[in-house]
Design a protein around this nucleic acid. Structure first.
Lengths: 117, 117
DNA sequence: TCCATCTATTCGGGTATGCGAATACATCTA
DNA sequence: TAGATGTATTCGCATACCCGAATAGATGGA
């Protein structure tokens, strides 16, 4: 094992945490589909503008999106397509997982269904 | 864009959230290096046993690790190596980000020597 | 310079999540 | 069955995070 908690905490703070909200992932997909400014994004995704701006601020701070001024607007774009690839891989994994255990896993709740042990 | 918030929320609940803690990633790496039981893992990583058990319970609930009884012990193992590949890709991204622009990760204020968030 | 538009930040509150300690539960062996 | 070892859960608390509304800050055109 050549990985330290230190590095993982850094990784967590920069990338994992950024993916820690479904709306941010949705924003990344939307920007990957087409770069946009905050207002257009907010309208397209049906979210309040401050919320989108806050998410974008976080993503930009972590260098996962880039910004370009265009008149009074700020155009956001995905900076590294690998982040999309990562999420795509996660989606494939999820699909496999769900197809294998079709019966549970649907609700990560603390209910104690009969354990399969 | 063929991704819905619904799917991403499911994805978040199953996988992203599982990666949302550095210690869990460390646990995944450790298990990928070698499957182990709770106690051995706790000792190797220097964490309290209940903490490790709780993390493992979460990972198992999401099918990211598998369990095998071995006498009185329960051996945990990574169920899908793609999760490791994902984290490795994230680490590469992080390395690129950090090396690329040491000066651009910060914004408004004129602080450049810092790699803080 | 004033105004319209776009973007970023603050505020208060609700929720989720992680933790350590203690404890309950399970399994194996003698 | 009792004891030893390994595992899982509960409890109380602290922290981190997200959100909507309101507001402040920036930018470009008339």
């Amino acid at each position: 094992m050549n990985v330290t908690l230190d590095e993982l905490e850094l990784l967590h703070g920069h990338i994992c945490q950024a993916l820690g909200d479904p709306k941010r992932i949705l924003i990344l997909y939307a920007l990957h589909d087409q770069p946009r400014n905050v207002t257009a994004l907010a309208e397209a995704l049906g979210m309040p503008q401050p919320t989108v701006s806050r998410h974008l601020g976080l993503l930009r701070q972590r260098a996962l999106v880039t910004t370009t001024r265009e008149g009074a607007s700020v155009i956001y774009a995905v900076s590294d397509p690998r982040i999309i690839h990562i999420v795509d891989t996660m989606r494939e994994m999820l699909r496999d997982i769900l197809s294998h255990h079709q019966t549970r896993l649907s609700e990560p709740s603390a209910s104690q269904d009969e354990t399969e042990d």
